[in-house]
Amino acid sequence: MKWWLIAWREIRWEVFLDRASLLRTAIFVVIPIFFVFGNRGLPGGQAGEATIVALALQSVFFPSLAGVSLIAATFTAEKENGTLVPLLAAPIRDFDIVLGKLIGMVAPVLAACAVTLAAAYALASYRYGAERIAHTLTPQLIYALLVLSLLYLVTTGSVTMIVAARVRSSRAAQQLAGLVIAISAAVFGGLGVVASQLADGWALVAVGVLLVFFDVGALEIARRVWQRGEVIGRI
């Protein structure tokens, strides 16, 4: 359970005490709520329902973007400050370090996603009527949206960690994170649209399961790319 020690340290001392990352996350939390607030009216029927779902999707997706950026910075910041060496000298498996860092970033961002979704739900209920919103955003759909954001975060986070392990500076990592965000958003969106058209939507479940396997694989690749010799050499 040493990954939990690393994750908790990240959450308590790095995420919540880093004003820049807090500000960035706050901006990504406010944007989707602003979209709900700024939307003047909803069309009736399926078009209106689609708009409500799109607003809810934005509410979990935008804070996730901040998470990818956070994950990109975590490894490079440690490399820049040399703080990885004491961690590497401690009796911890490399996988625990990688997992702990990922969870330390994903957990607070997922909480931000949940808070944004709740705020968007409350605001939409106030503006468009609670009954209409409750009819469209069922508990199952909300659960699915949160799972989707978790999958997105872990997947893009793992890929970002692989990329960040290869670069020297936080700045380069942030730039690469932008690239990962753009590509992953396109791939996620494309896969989602295609899968939703197949087998009455069951293909979406298959995509979800595939993503879980992909994430485990990506974490292992991150661990291997992030070789001790490589990291030490770069430090």
């Binding site: 340290r9 001392w13 005490l17 400050n81 040399g82 703080t83 060496v85 004491p86």
Partner: peptide, 10 residues
């Protein structure tokens, strides 16, 4: 090590 390498926020 020659550099203390500490977590400054802690």
């Amino acid at each position: 090590t020659d550099q203390p390498s500490l977590y400054d926020r802690m």
